[in-house]
């Protein structure tokens, strides 16, 4: 730069020099722009360009009922176009006087992973790359130290002697770290205790994934893939409607079922009846009975103060 005076001086001396510097500038500029244009070529493969309507969609709580109906119709249209099946998409609200809790009997669980796959099927999770809300751990007998957990066990037969199994999914905390850290309020806890995600609001920063002590959140690292014939058409806005690339998702206690009075899919499929779900405000419910009568239950990583609505317990 020291000698730039002479260079810039050159710009101003004589027609020949001017032409030369003009040629130089245009050579760099045209080739540079060509390279810039070519560098953007991958964008031609962009299939899922957000429409103006989708780009401008308002935040969940700010949508009026009419706007919500339009959004639900749009989701149904888009899903039908993509999967060839018209889904039934609803915006299910929490029920009054209901707070959900989940109890899982560690004495019963055999680690068969059926819950994992029933959940995938029910909640339209991507089959490749694989997204699963439930992770079943195999822990050595007598230890709750997660660092001893084996995730990839695959023996001939479960349960294996000397080990017990523990499925982990979203613990639906009363004091959820994921909700606290989300910079855009894309995830929140509803009055029935379910922490939900507005997939149309999430910006994909993955801060919640770093914050969750239960490793319960999953990110769509690419466009999810669900075979057309495997799509579950019974959908909810905050539940199992198909997600897009670049957003978070996680277990939502099967909102599309539970806010409709049904049991979650993981519970129904459990071959040993280890999973119990219901309204904890109703003392005669299954979860109410368990929390009243069983001696020991564990809130995973209780010391973190997250206060899960998911309880592990033991019995004879």
């Amino acid at each position: 730069m020291n000698s730039s005076n002479s260079a810039s001086g050159a710009v101003q001396t004589g027609d020949g020099m001017n032409r030369r510097s003009f040629l130089r500038a245009s050579a760099v500029l045209t080739t540079g722009l060509a390279a810039l244009a070519a560098s953007l070529k991958p964008l031609m493969e962009l299939e899922d360009f957000p429409t103006a309507e989708r780009f401008m969609q308002k935040y969940y709580t700010e949508l009026t009922p009419t706007e919500m109906d339009k959004v639900l119709k749009r989701i149904a249209d888009e899903t039908e176009a993509q999967y060839g099946k018209r889904p039934h998409v609803r915006d299910l609200k929490p029920m009054d006087g209901v707070e959900f809790a989940y109890c899982l009997n560690l004495t019963r669980c055999i680690g068969c992973r059926k819950c994992v796959h029933a959940c995938v099927k029910e909640n339209n999770q991507s089959r490749n790359p694989e997204i699963q809300y439930i992770r079943v751990l195999r822990l050595p007998h007598g230890s709750m130290d997660m660092e001893k957990a084996e995730h990839h066990y695959n023996p001939e037969k479960v349960p294996e002697p000397g080990f017990f199994n523990m499925p982990v999914q979203c613990q639906q905390c009363k004091n959820p770290p994921c909700v606290k850290v989300c910079p855009v309020h894309a995830t929140w806890t509803d009055t029935d205790g379910i922490t939900v995600i507005d997939y149309d609001w999430c910006i994909g920063c993955r801060y919640c994934e770093a914050a969750c002590p239960y490793w319960a959140r999953r990110f769509n690292f690419t466009k999810p893939f669900i075979p057309k014939d495997k799509l579950n058409p019974e959908m909810a806005y905050l539940g199992n409607r198909p997600r897009r690339q670049g957003v978070m998702e996680k277990c939502h206690f099967c909102i599309q079922r539970t806010r409709d009075g049904r049991y979650p899919a993981c519970l129904e499929v459990c071959p040993v009846g280890a999973r119990k779900f219901g309204n904890v405000l109703d003392p005669s419910s299954e979860v109410g009975t368990i929390l009243r009568t069983k001696r020991v239950f564990i809130q995973l990583k209780e010391e973190l103060g997250t206060s899960p609505r998911f309880f592990y317990y033991f019995d004879v």
Binding site: Y59, V184, H185, A186, W201, I203, G246
Partner: peptide, 22 residues
Amino acid sequence: LGRPDRFWHLIPGIGQFNFPAS
């Protein structure tokens, strides 16, 4: 960001800015 197209959700006033919690 997974969804850079939604950066505007972060703008205070226009989006939903989770301040001061986040």
